[in-house]
Design a protein around this nucleic acid. Sequence first.
RNA 1: GGGGUAGUAGGGUAGCCUGGUCCAUCCUAGAGCGUUUGGGACGCUUUGACGGCGGUUCGAAUCCGCCCUACCCCA
Length: 478
Amino acid sequence: MDDDAGALPLKEDFSAWYNEILWRAEIMDVRYPVKGLYVWYPYGFAIRKFVYQRLRDLLDRDHQETLFPLLIPEQEFMKEAEHIKGFEDEVYWVTHGGTTPLDVKLALRPTSETAIYPMYALWVRSHADLPMKYYQIVNTFRYETKQTRPLIRLREITSFKEAHTVHATWEEASEQVEEAIRLYREFYNGLCIPTLVSKRPDWDKFPGADYTIAVDAIMPNGKTLQIGTVHHLADHFSRTFNITYEDKNGEQKFGQQTCYGISERSIAALISIHGDDKGLILPPSVATLQVVIVPITIGKRHEDVMTAARKLHTELTAAGFRVKLDSRDMRPGAKYYWWELRGVPLRLELGPRDLDAGKVMAVNRIGRKTSIDLSTVTEDVSRLLSEITDALRTRAEDHTRSHLCCAPSLDVLKVKLDEGKVGVVQWCQEKRCADRIEEHTNASILGTDVRSQYVPETEGICIGCGNPGKPTLVGRAY
RNA sequence: GGGGUAGUAGGGUAGCCUGGUCCAUCCUAGAGCGUUUGGGACGCUUUGACGGCGGUUCGAAUCCGCCCUACCCCA
């Protein structure tokens, strides 16, 4: 090897790999001169667009998209006591209009409850208005004090998808929580990202919620990343913001609410979980380009090959694939590396030899080569792309399964966590034991009521105190 | 929350302690020309920088102050 200069850091050095791939694959430029704010490159933005379109498609089944303002007046923001406590250290305030101090400070939304609910109070009139299910995709601002990290811990979350629903009863809201979880699972399944769903402990729930269900993914280094949350708000906010409806008997009642959201952490997980030492690997469903055609042009056959490549491009585009014909004046090998870094799932190599045989060489991003007939190329490409999807899903599931470890004691748990695993333990749900577990292992209780095909629903005794416990996830979280 | 290290061209570095020719070097960077082309081609020409603001000085990448940003480690 005299030339490995183009290589990425190995993925096992995850932090370095992650930082490097973001700019090498042109996802984000981290050089914007404000802490915690980053710039999307067009290529990364296109990935974001496809990912969010999938989420929109899912939500649009029975939600409606809307848009609320970025600025929230101080008195609205300050209405819900618990909510304030949870966010007050992280809020950016607009205090001036030009040089004039504002009479009423305006908060840049760290989340939108207090922007949305005053309007819900106006909109919700009768039981016939319920359930109300709206969502918006917006940027939010949080003055993070911990170390910021692109796509993972940001001061401007550029794409927070948040849904806010109102229901007549607590039970209906509760059912909506379950519906949201199903929806998120379907979303992440489409991205081939395995998820762990659990109920956050009380001290870690959303400020102002009855309870919080969270969706976590296991990153390559074994740390967990929260990639979605669903909150049952009960009537905490509706009492504060006076969201009432008239029921069938003519009585005024408070609405029961839920809210749930996903941020660009979904894209951090997508990149991290599927990528390898060569670069990104994008599942076909969200790949900016699903197929790249690399013509192998030599001497006199140049025009023949280019003509055939253009025809192939037209044919595949007409069939609905996102295809690019790479006709740049570069050596074919350089193009291979280029597109591998950018995660294009399928490459078609077309040269004179293939052309004579009526074939084209298909190479998938995981390294499998097959020669396919030009006459059946549309069906074959479709088949190969779904093979890639299946392979990515299986691989990611294997990773998740192999990183979950049952731990019967605190010491075993610590060892497993240090090995980069996520622990499944029994816990009695007392704060005192949680503190012991967290202190002993330098990790966090992620949650109970684990809904995962990877975690058995066993009964056992708490590893902190020996009393009856419930299966609980413990991990080192981002 | 606490601590540490760093910022020089597209990327990577040297120079800084001890201020001094308009300032070096490497590359997969950019621009241009030519020869090439089944896994990162080669040759030649060329462009371009001292994180920001202020101070000291005849003179600052270098010394002083403040700020910004990044990365790493430990609660």
